[in-house]
Amino acid sequence: MKKILFMLMCMFICIPTIANAHTELTSSNPKEGQMVTEELDEIVLDFAGSIEELSTMKLMKDGEEVSLSQVQVQDKKMVGSPSAPLENGSYIIDWTIAGEDGHPISGKVSFTVQIKQMQEEKEEAQPKAANKENEQQDKGEVQKENQTSSNSVTTIITVILLVVLCLGVALMFRKKRK
């Protein structure tokens, strides 16, 4: 019985470590929902843990990919450089990484470019742009909620599997004693 209690105690101590094993986005430049008012030379995504070289990012505007001259993975960072100055409008950084644990994780960061030189041309369309910006922010919040829900489901499944495994081991030990 002491062995079973010891095993269960060890399991519950290990669960927080297992549940947080997935790498997540900790910060970005530009930030989610940010309005960029100066030329953007690079896009930087920072993650909680090291990411693999297979990790990628795409920059999207109005459903079309915007060319990045290069995307580099540097330990916990992914850096992309736009090929040309970004035009005013709404953008989405669509990223996919492979974390240290090998699980693929993806997400999106939306932001808006509104550089003053181009702002005069778009003043008439500003109410429409404001509505699009609000829609992009709402989409970003939904995507964050979906990613959090996915992590929660993974954690719950992991806990259930560990409990079942421990109970199976405990039953095996119990049968051997008899």
Rank of each mutant, 00 (worst) to 15 (best):
T154M: 07
V142R: 06
S90N: 12
Q74K: 07
Q126I: 11
I160H: 01
T148I: 10
I92M: 02
D94S: 13
M172S: 08
L171T: 14
K132I: 05
K139E: 15
A125R: 10
S106F: 06
F111I: 01
R177M: 01
G49C: 08
P16F: 13
V73R: 03
I97P: 13
L165G: 06
Q70M: 06
I93A: 02
L165W: 03
A130S: 01
T17H: 15
K176Q: 12
T96R: 05
I156F: 03
T96V: 01
K175P: 04
K128W: 13
Q126L: 14
L45W: 03
M60G: 05
K58D: 15
K176P: 00
Q70W: 02
S69V: 05
G99W: 00
P82V: 13
I157M: 14
A129M: 14
H22D: 15
M11P: 01
A48D: 06
M11G: 08
Q126Y: 12
S106N: 03
M11Y: 02
S83P: 09
Q114K: 09
L8N: 07
P85W: 10
K178A: 12
P82K: 05
Q70A: 11
T37N: 00
P127S: 03
E65D: 11
K77Y: 07
M9G: 07
E24Y: 10
M9E: 07
L40N: 12
F47Y: 14
K31Y: 13
D101I: 08
L8P: 00
V36P: 01
M1N: 06
S81Q: 06
E145S: 12
T148V: 12
V109D: 05
S106H: 03
L54E: 15
V153T: 11
T112K: 01
K61R: 08
K116Q: 00
T158H: 08
S150Q: 03
P104M: 14
V159S: 01
E123P: 00
Q114H: 01
K122I: 06
L54K: 15
L68S: 01
C14W: 07
L162N: 05
K61F: 00
T23C: 09
E52Y: 06
N88M: 06
E38Q: 12
P16S: 14
F6S: 15
G140E: 09
G140W: 04
T17P: 00
T26E: 09
M35I: 11
N151T: 12
D41A: 02
S83D: 12
G80Y: 02
E32K: 02
Q143T: 03
T17L: 15
V73I: 07
V164D: 08
I13W: 05
K144R: 15
K61P: 01
E39N: 04
T148W: 08
D75Y: 12
T23M: 01
I160F: 09
F12L: 13
E53D: 09
K77W: 02
E53I: 02
I4T: 11
I157H: 07
P104R: 14
E87S: 07
K61D: 06
V44D: 11
A98Q: 01
Y91H: 10
N134E: 05
G168R: 04
L68M: 05
G168Q: 10
M57D: 00
V164H: 07
G49D: 15
M35E: 09
V71G: 02
E32D: 04
I97F: 07
G33Y: 09
T158M: 09
I115R: 11
E52Q: 04
M35H: 00
Q119H: 04
D62A: 06
Q72R: 07
V159E: 00
E135G: 04
S106I: 00
I157E: 14
A130C: 00
